[in-house]
Nucleic acid binder design. Structure first.
Lengths: 183, 183, 183, 183
DNA sequence: AATGAATGAGCCTTCATTCAT
DNA sequence: GATGAATGAAGGCTCATTCAT
């Protein structure tokens, strides 16, 4: 039961922090807001996480797992190898048009940390490498493994362009290019 | 001389703030640091700019002008129409490998402001539309105007990918794709 | 014309400051707000008035003149000697129910200055002594000069009570007492 | 002991703030002065009180309790019903001649807040209604309940008049009137 | 005489974190 | 192990006033 409570505390913190970090940004979100909205006492927060940055890490890990899972599921909905790659971009088209979409969790954070925040940058890199790995796994079977980083660059272009313009057009264009590359 | 002093104060603030906003992020940079490093007294800063956000706007405008100019110059170095487009990516290759490069000024900021900061978001969008416009002007003469947003999406992919990985590979790959699209 | 301009500047400052001092309080009203709303340049304000306190003094003098005049007029509307005294309270009944009434100008200010602000306190005292003098002039002819300060105390009670409760009842009760005293 | 410390911090803040608010006025007293003179660290002050206004509220409540108690005690010193009412004014005579008397706490504050500061105005009104209630309780037994608000208006006139003139005469005159009314 | 620019001190409030219990 | 209280530094911004021109 102590274990349960601890977990629920941890979960409550991460959930609240995730929502706030995503919507307001990491730096703009204060510890006080997290404790106020999670209901967790401040000192308990600091026995669960050593620092605000550790909460950020938990957020990145948590959202990373969700992202990995959803990308994987998107590719599994179709059977044709090429279509699997394009399914990723179809997923993005849906994703970026969701009501509570505020951009890519990882691109958002990477702009708020300096080059010195190695742990965070490494985690973000790791997450993005998962995406590259996914593309590699989809492309190698059809002999297009060398397109991996090109397709991945389109992926980032879709997300970054969408963030700036708050418009789906960069995602659409990324997909168009992907189709051409896979022809 | 009064005019001179005014300009030097304003300029001193913007230069200092630009350096700090770029290296540390907007939110992580405090007004106190700006005044300490610019040597401008706090109240003078606030007679020159109404708010920190106004300094951010000046920073975006200033860097936007530089960016516009450098992109234009990059395309003017070559003569072949297709090469002009690729020259943009060559410019990026050089840019992102500079010692004091910390990512795209505009993508960095866009992650730190909420959807409510309309003035800032509009300025960033405007800046990025300048880039789209540049691509359009280069592509239309060779009958490839409909590739504008695809090339632009590659541009963003190059910058965003580079930011995450601190590596030139996304820029290289963006250029590779551009070459294929222009063939 | 220079004279005219000077006067209009002075008038503009006093009018704006009066409105703001009255509605927001003296301390809560900043010089910047006065210049913003009066359209007078800051350095011009400081050539017209030596300090914020001097503007306060001008405000008290200006409102004092208005108050003297209105009280006098109120007493002149009736003929019966006793009624003249009561007419002051009838005037107050109307006054405190006006839309833009925020309490007695002078009682308001007296609470914002310390005992050290002698000039201001003296001006306020002088203004209130004008009221005492008015009552004396009305009461002596009917052989009730010794009631002067009692009636005056009712006057202050009406204003102070009204300020607290934002209700006319203290004015009404002050008048009731005055009627009894004059019987 | 934790409890003790909490109380001592809170108490220390309220005591210091009370002294300063009373002597200098609410607006003219800064948080920095409160922390300097109370010895409480700024962030601790803000864990004890959410805002400066909350300290003002504590001040009003604290002084309100003192005022209620002293008025009650004053009336209990005498036995004759009518004398109990007059004892209130005798109390005021002593009060306003004290060395550190700077006017009525509540009338002072009411002039520094706008009509929008409802919580503060309500507290002040509540305090003054306690006085009205006291008068009512003293007057009803002798069949003079309908004089309550007249006597109360005298009370305010005494305090307001004293504040302006820094002289006891308004209190003396208020008492004189009260005596006549009670005859 | 008039002004735009500049000033230092101060405003109220929040930051992420740690401590004693 | 959990917590309420405490911390020093910093947050962005405004104050009334004066200066050089």
């Amino acid at each position: 039961m102590a274990r349960e409570r601890k977990n629920s505390v941890r979960q409550s913190i991460v959930e609240t922090a995730s929502r706030l970090f995503y919507k307001q940004g990491y730096t703009s979100t204060g510890i006080n807001q997290i404790i106020a909205e999670s209901g967790v006492v401040k000192s308990t927060l600091y026995t669960t996480f050593r620092s605000k940055e550790e909460i950020l890490m938990a957020y990145l890990e948590s959202e990373g797992a969700v992202s990995d899972k959803e990308l994987k599921e998107a590719t599994e909905k179709v059977n044709d190898p090429k279509e699997k790659v394009l399914a990723v971009f179809d997923y993005l088209v849906e994703l970026v048009q969701q009501k509570e979409y505020y951009g890519c969790h990882f691109l958002n954070v990477v702009s708020e940390v300096t080059k010195e925040d190695e742990a965070i940058r490494t985690q973000i890199k790791k997450q993005k490498n998962n995406v590259r790995q996914l593309f590699r796994q989809l492309l190698q079977p059809i002999g297009k493994g060398d397109l991996t980083d090109e397709i991945y660059t389109l992926f980032e272009g879709a997300l970054a362009g969408n963030k700036v313009h708050d418009d789906v057009f960069p995602v659409i264009n990324a997909k168009k290019i992907a189709e051409k590359l896979l022809k």
